[in-house]
Amino acid sequence: MKHVRTIIDKEWSEVFKNRWVISTMTLLPMLFVAMPLVMLYMTTSSLPVDLPAESAGLPAGFTEVCAGLTAGECTQIYLLNQFMLLFMLMPLMIPTTIAAYSIVGEKTTRSLEPLLATPITTVELLAGKGLAAVIPGVLISYAAFGIFVIGSLLLGLSTAVINYILSPIWLLGILVLGPILSVIATIVAIYISSRVSDPRVAEQLSGMVIIPLMLVMFAVLAGKLVININFMLIAIVICALLAFGMLRLGTVIFDRENILTKWK
């Protein structure tokens, strides 16, 4: 455990010395929190509140979510349903910026060889590098969600909308699926980082982990998909299995000699 802590401490000491990294890690989440809040603020003041939900003209699959709500509330919930994916984006993007650099960065500065010569085990090394990326991703997305909840309380939204924000779908998504996505993104980024010889390539390739999420986002925007509790539970199970499999595979294929000597 001490080795893992040492690696995490080392990664953070380096990463957080870099102001640019800190700003990308904080600005984006702030934007992602501000956008839905602004949207909620604007829709609260402009939408008619007394019409029944069916009159809001929302996709068919969605209206059942709104049973008993007003059209205004239902529209807000519909929009929130889409913004939720922004909160899923954070635990994907923040770890990749750290993890993509983690191995190839040490290759280019030639510090990888002395590091691999220490008695640290491969699993400890990967765990340290991985946690150093996952933890900030999870913490920042939790914090962003916390700020979002406080913000929406301050906006004085209707109880139905607040209840929706604090419903199991959101809580599962942010608190459970978010960290799982962080783990997946981190494993992908570390794997790429150990294979390429240029940090920029590592960063760009790793950035592609958001593509599947983007597809989901488009499907939601196009009204083809509604994120309900079933969808969330299935996503959690699939992603958890995926993360677990990747972890197992990663520790098997990750090999000191290869990452030290293979320069593609």
Binding site: K17, S111, E113
Partner: peptide, 10 residues
Amino acid sequence: TEAPGMYERL
């Protein structure tokens, strides 16, 4: 090592 790299920022 032949080219001993350090953590430059630290």
